[in-house]
């Protein structure tokens, strides 16, 4: 588990632990998050026949984490080709889910953010979602000017993939958007742009 810096608006990713009382375990995992799922659920094998795993290999494609997850023998495992398709299936399941379902989210911060935002839309209190950050520290960033999202930002400043402004990544996180805030870096002196620093690898 990665320890993240002291940003007040950033969620605390306390780590996955299996809720022994849950009637159903709904697990959304991306990339290296597979390792967190395996670690947590191999400690609680009695929960697996009530467990659904939605997995997107993402940044860990080719490492065959999906086989290791299948070896846990959960009630159901679905491997999605992309985060978008995983979220479509997740929302479909949340729509008919009942109380007693515990939701887990693990992977990169941008992925966790999107899962949490989807669940909040179904009335889930975000505190009740168990989360664990795994994999790259790359950030999902929203341009405050054009509102466009740029995924996998590893350096600040960077160029907005939508409007082309050069954006400084602010240490301010929105759970609703599942993203950090990007603000024009050369607004006061156009063209004066500090060198990019790789901070979020």
């Amino acid at each position: 588990m990665t320890t993240l810096s002291d940003i007040k608006s950033r969620p605390i990713y306390a780590g996955l632990k299996v809720d022994e009382y849950a009637r159903r375990h709904l697990v959304a995992a991306e990339g290296e998050g597979a390792r967190a799922v395996i670690e947590a659920f191999s400690m609680a094998p009695e929960a697996l026949d009530r467990t659904t795993i939605l997995y997107c290999p993402g940044g860990s494609a080719g490492q065959d984490h999906e086989t290791a997850l299948a070896d846990l023998a959960p009630d159901l495992i679905h491997v999605a080709p992309s985060i978008e398709t995983l979220l479509v299936r997740l929302k479909g399941m949340l729509n008919t889910a009942t109380m007693g379902t515990r939701l887990y989210a693990t992977g990169t911060e941008g992925f966790i953010g999107q899962v949490v935002a989807a669940a909040v839309g179904f009335g889930v209190d975000h505190h009740s979602i168990f989360t664990e950050h795994r994999g790259s520290l790359a950030r999902r960033v929203q341009c405050v000017h054009c509102k466009g999202m740029t995924d996998n930002v590893t350096a600040t400043p960077f160029t907005c993939s939508h409007c082309g402004l050069t954006l400084f990544v602010r240490d301010h996180y929105s759970r609703r958007l599942g993203a950090f805030q990007g603000v024009c870096v050369d607004a006061e002196e156009p063209g004066v742009i500090p060198p990019a620093e790789e901070l979020y690898k």
Binding site: D19, Y21, A22, R23, R24, M99, G100, T101, R102, D125, H127, S128
Partner: peptide
């Protein structure tokens, strides 16, 4: 409620 798997938040 907890036994039924409800989160404390609810």
């Amino acid at each position: 409620g907890r036994k039924a798997g409800w989160p404390v938040e609810n």
